[in-house]
Design a binder for these strands. Structure first.
Lengths: 244, 244
DNA sequence: CGGTTCGTTGAAGTAACTCAACGGCTGTGG
DNA sequence: CCACAGCCGTTGAGTTACTTCAACGAACCG
């Protein structure tokens, strides 16, 4: 797979991403080890891994998950292009969670050995790493609020809202207002703490209410306003986000 | 309230805390603005606050929470001495969550204006700030796993295990193996996504099984092994944690 | 083709919820 | 000092949201 030089990174152009100085981009660029491809369904990081690699998600969808010893699994959050993968996992003796590719995925692998240089020589970028960690925590907080307090229908509405917003912000919405949507109902169930059957029944209800449509792998919000209301959704205002 | 100079900080001595160089401690010390007291039940940071203060929790218990517009509230995680408060909240335009004192609480307030100096001049400490953020995310991940996948009894067992471990690690366990435990059942319900009534009934069952005892405000694990089993609890191994 | 994955639906069971009431404790004010 | 209100924990009864079990159709793939 061809490696894309950071100065020409297409993400950096469209997205809601914060501009970096030439020095900073040059440093990030030489921190990139290689461009990695992982197929849908494969694990990028396994729970328990020691010192897993660090990546930026370049293209495709992934998710972080954590399981109980008897197999019950909770999806913690979904990862979209621009998200950092494996940084937190690196801070502990063993990765507390796994990361799995939802679609075929392209990753920019970063040189773990240079993290130290980053903190020493690019304090602004170091700060941005903290920002990214805090931002992911914010997402998990929001998911926890939903899983703990929302009803099944509200959970689904909120998840769809959140994913549409996020996907849209990194330019994944097609011209027709439709969006490639790779989650199976099992993923949704695992993310929301619901059974597969009940997830299905709740989704069908919302779809019959005309809130959204899923045809195959593509999603369209047909009544965003009602969806927002049902979800009790409110935006977390974010100005600009960093991209490593 | 008397301000404690960082070099003599009692937390730094007993806890599982990472040693710092004299330079680093001196810097942290002059970053401390003042020692703040907040009474039980009061908010330390309100959801929506712009640029809230940054604190280290010096003594007492607190929690982070997030609410839906209709009032349903989810406790995201509990905060114990040594935990950093308000750092993530500072990275966004408005704090996405609130922080409330569970007991009377002592806080070391940090000078927000010096965070920048910290990142520039003390990269190791900056890294530790990221570590603390990642560590808190790990806790939220664990809570989300529990709220999404565990049954009511398992949730309670897991929460008690976690709090005992954490409280013990910062020296809050009394000589008799007992622990001051300031949570009401309402707090537990809000943290686990359960109703108050069902929380009560589940807790009484576990107590009758002899897993633990709560008398007034003090908690004793009477069968830690069974509790661990029921919770499907497994330790996240952590060597040393930083303390700002 | 036959196997597999994914979505869909019905029926029956149960974990968790709501409503309601009461007891103990604490603080407060007459 | 007692009366009263407020908070917290406890318990019973009835309801519901969600689960489990089971079966089947459509699409996809080797």
């Amino acid at each position: 797979m061809a490696r894309v030089p950071c100065p020409e990174c297409p993400l950096r152009r469209h997205g809601p991403f914060k501009p970096y100085s030439e020095d900073e981009i040059a440093f990030i660029n030489q921190m990139k080890k290689r461009h990695v491809l992982v197929h849908a369904g494969r694990e990028i990081i396994s729970a328990g891994d020691a010192e897993p690699a660090i990546y930026t998600l370049f293209a495709g969808w992934a998710f972080r998950a954590k399981a109980l010893p008897d197999g019950r699994r909770q999806i913690l959050n979904f990862l979209l292009p621009g998200d950092l993968i494996g940084f937190q996992a690196n801070m502990f003796e063993a990765s507390p969670h796994s990361v799995e590719a939802l679609t075929d995925v392209e990753l920019c692998q970063l040189d773990r050995g240079k993290v130290w240089d980053l903190y020493r020589n690019f304090p602004e970028v170091a700060f941005d790493v903290t920002w990214l960690t805090a931002h992911e925590e914010m997402l998990v907080d929001e998911n926890l609020l939903g899983v703990g307090q929302r009803t099944a229908q509200e959970k689904i509405a909120a998840l769809i809202m959140q994913l549409c917003k996020r996907a849209d912000s990194v330019g994944l919405t097609n011209s027709g207002g439709t969006l490639e949507f790779p989650l199976t109902q099992q993923h949704i169930a695992d993310a929301l703490g619901l059974s597969l059957v009940h997830t299905n029944k709740s989704m069908r209800k919302l779809e019959k209410m005309g809130l959204y449509e899923i045809r195959g792998r593509s999603l369209k919000m047909t009544n965003g306003h009602a969806l927002k209301n049902l979800a009790h959704y409110f935006d977390e205002p974010i100005s600009k986000r960093p991209l490593l």
